[in-house]
Write a protein that binds this DNA or RNA. Structure first.
Length: 360
DNA sequence: AAAGCGTGGTA
DNA sequence: TTACCAAGCTT
């Protein structure tokens, strides 16, 4: 096939079927001269790393309402940004997001670099994100390769080598198809195709705009590609956390270490299940077992026993924060279980007085 | 360079 | 339930 034939067909398809998203400029608007806001493009790309569009929408809206510009985000407090990110996962992204915003403001006059290499040097910006922002925000002919593009290329060219070994070949193929004209629309077109038609399972080859050029379809192996190496089994881990509730409803929370699991986020004191803490409650109390939370991380199958206790005095570690403080999902599950137990078995509701955020 | 790092949806 | 998967980056 001629390399540019794929781009021509995908752009024509995208002109009709482009998905509408809050961070995206439609192909029609772009043709009329509207240019995307690099800040919004970058923010969306970071949020979308290993994360579905559906999960990102609400977070993107809240972030852009709170911090409409890179200058605003750079001036935000760390805790506020981590709190807004709570629940989205991969928290290193949030730390890098803030670091990146501050570098852009401090070292680049508040303007994102407009080249792939310049972008690649920013915290949290890897090969994919640099290419995506360069293409989408600045119309650079960068080869944008995410999981969708890998899949589309593997099928189009019937690449049967396993990932990640095949990555290099797929990047080369992707670069060959990237057009000089409308590279930003093209990148989004391939990703839309991968998300809606050239899907991992049951690809809709019958309605694919490039089905006539697809080698895997010709061989009847489209659904089997790309091949991937089996992933390592998860390790099973058991642990315990203590949820301390003050009379005003305040919860005892600790800031977790900056690196590692749930790095930089708030969490309940634990027994060392994560490598931190001691096998001892943070305060003396009448402890009740609220139950067990099961949480599956990328590499750990965790069962966490949740203990709950009411206390009036100060604690040895951590600080009391309002009961609605944003928490990562694991800790949110533990909180829900603990408060339900408190209400059901002890006849106590979450809080009576105004919760005070003061540290003890 | 293989492993570590979240979460929610789907088959 | 299990397994896989989603617009990956860092060390």
């Amino acid at each position: 096939m001629r390399d540019d034939e794929v781009a021509r067909l995908l752009l024509a398809w995208y002109d009709i079927h482009a998905r509408v998203m809050p961070w995206r400029v439609s192909p029609q608007d772009r043709a009329a001269g509207v240019t995307p806001d690099p800040y919004r493009v970058w923010l969306s790309e970071v949020m979308l790393q290993q994360t579905t569009v559906a999960a990102v929408r609400g977070y993107f809206r809240r972030f852009t309402e709170l911090w409409p510009s890179v200058q605003a985000l750079a001036g935000a407090e760390d805790g506020a940004v981590m709190g807004e990110w709570a629940g989205l996962g991969y928290y290193a992204r949030a730390r890098n997001l803030l670091a990146c915003a501050r570098v852009v403001v401090a070292d680049h006059g508040g303007q994102f670099p407009d080249t792939e290499a310049g972008l690649r040097a920013l915290p949290g910006v890897g090969a994919y994100t640099a290419a995506a922002v360069a293409a989408i925000a600045f119309d650079r002919a960068a080869a944008v390769v995410d999981g969708n593009v890998e899949r589309v290329m593997a099928r189009l060219h019937a690449v049967t080598e396993e990932l990640p070994g095949a990555k290099g070949a797929l990047v080369t193929l992707a670069g060959r198809h990237t057009p000089q004209a409308r590279p930003g629309d093209y990148a989004q077109a391939v990703m839309d195709l991968g998300a809606t038609i050239c899907t991992p399972r049951n690809p809709a080859c019958g309605i694919c705009p490039v089905n006539g050029l697809c080698a895997a379809r010709a061989q009847g192996i489209a659904a089997e590609l790309p091949r991937k190496a089996r992933k390592a089994a998860k390790s099973v881990r058991q642990g315990r956390v203590w949820v301390v509730v003050r009379p005003d409803g305040g919860l005892l929370l600790e800031q977790r270490p900056a690196k590692g699991l749930l790095g930089g986020m708030l969490g309940f004191p634990g027994d060392g299940w994560d490598g931190f803490g001691q096998d001892m409650p943070p305060v003396q109390a009448d402890w009740h077992e609220a139950g067990e939370v099961r949480h599956i991380f990328t590499h750990i199958d965790l069962r966490l026993t949740v203990m709950v206790g009411r206390v009036e005095g100060p604690a040895l570690r951590g600080q009391f924060l309002p009961p609605e403080t944003p928490l990562p999902t694991l800790m949110d599950k533990a909180r829900a279980l603990a408060l339900a137990q408190l209400e059901a078995n002890l006849g106590v509701k979450g809080g009576h007085d105004e919760p005070s955020p003061s540290a003890d």
